[in-house]
């Protein structure tokens, strides 16, 4: 969690310095992705939204590669084709992020169905926000998961804000987002997403259910988006500046730290050392990533990359466009 927050902090600064075109922080929501990761096994697949970078950080994906993606530099694993934070890593169980909301919620169900059809005990986890849970693909996913009892965990991260509209706009007359699952016969929970230990235990329970062929679980993680929606957003126009401080569920890092101090797992010097460590780790990765370029100063991927990977083998019509472009 601390590493994810420090990573976000540094990337946001870099975006302001034009090293990246765009950035999205997960401030205040780190517990969900980081604790959820610990419930997964190798071979499981997340279908994340743009605010689950904690899954990759917790999985140990190289920070310098995440940064290279954010900088769109010459080492960007996605070759400059995707906006910052739209990571992809099959190896680390992180499905390629789409910018169209909710589309991946149902793809996760399909992946889970494939796991079951192949007879493996692997599972999938779909992710969506409170706002996007009104897209038709959300409901398509619930239908498919319910009909086929897919081994999937359907995660709704309710961070209270869909850019500028509060969760009540998305929720309507329903008392919660979790309750939607009941109409589909899907086991559904509403969980304090800022409690790291709660997230871990609920995620582990849902994963166990899925692996035991007991079907899908829908989980509404209640949290608060403490930062702006993105680097292009200024929340002061639609919510009080101090609302995050008034949020009753508190900050997930502070809560876990307090717990670990009170239970004697850590002492103050351990916590201080951790704070220094995460800053160092991010700085080292940043130096490494920037040695391969940033968006403004380059080097960035070659324009030739525009034409690759549209199809497995390039059709002549595209090859002629590439020749004409002359890159």
């Amino acid at each position: 969690m601390m590493l994810t927050r420090e990573f976000d902090r540094q990337m946001m600064i870099d975006q302001r310095q034009s090293k990246a075109s765009f950035y999205m922080q997960s401030t205040g929501e780190e517990a969900i992705a980081c604790a959820f990761h610990s419930a997964l096994r190798e071979g499981d697949m997340n279908f994340p939204t743009y605010r689950q970078q904690g899954l990759l950080v917790a999985a140990g994906y190289p920070l310098e590669l995440m940064m290279s993606q954010v900088y769109s530099n010459s080492r960007d694993p996605l070759r400059g084709r995707q906006m910052p934070v739209f990571y992809s890593s099959r190896e680390y169980g992180f499905f390629s992020i789409s910018g169209n909301l909710a589309t991946q919620f149902v793809q996760g169900v399909g992946w889970a169905m494939a796991c079951a059809l192949k007879g493996t005990s692997s599972i999938a986890a779909s992710w969506i926000g409170d706002g996007a849970s009104n897209e038709t693909d959300f409901f398509s996913a619930l239908v498919m998961a319910s009909t086929y009892r897919a081994p999937v965990i359907l995660n709704i991260v309710n961070n209270q804000w869909a850019i500028s509209t509060s969760e009540s706009v998305a929720r309507g007359l329903a008392p919660s987002f979790a309750i939607r699952g009941h109409g589909f016969g899907i086991a559904s929970l509403r969980v304090d997403g800022n409690d790291f230990l709660a997230v871990h235990s609920v995620a582990a329970w849902a994963a166990e259910r899925a692996r035991a062929n007991m079907g899908p679980t829908l989980i509404e993680w209640v949290t608060y988006r403490a930062a702006a929606h993105s680097s292009s957003d200024d929340p002061s126009g639609y919510r009080p500046a101090d609302e995050a401080q008034a949020w009753p569920l508190g900050d997930p890092i502070e809560r876990l730290t307090t717990h670990l101090l009170r239970t004697g797992v850590l002492d103050e010097s351990d916590v201080a050392a951790l704070r220094v460590d995460v800053v160092d780790e991010v700085r080292v990765a940043q130096i490494e990533a920037q040695s391969h370029g940033t968006l403004k100063q380059g080097p960035v991927p070659s324009p030739r990359e525009i034409f690759e990977d549209v199809f497995k083998s390039m059709p002549e019509s595209l090859a002629s466009q590439e020749r004409e472009a002359g890159y």
Partner: peptide, 20 residues
């Protein structure tokens, strides 16, 4: 399949990505 074209194709995308 249930009558949900976005569900059918969406799930098929996930299955195909998996390797089916």
């Amino acid at each position: 399949a249930p009558i949900t074209e976005s569900g059918i194709v969406g799930a098929a995308v996930g299955m195909a990505a998996y390797g089916l």
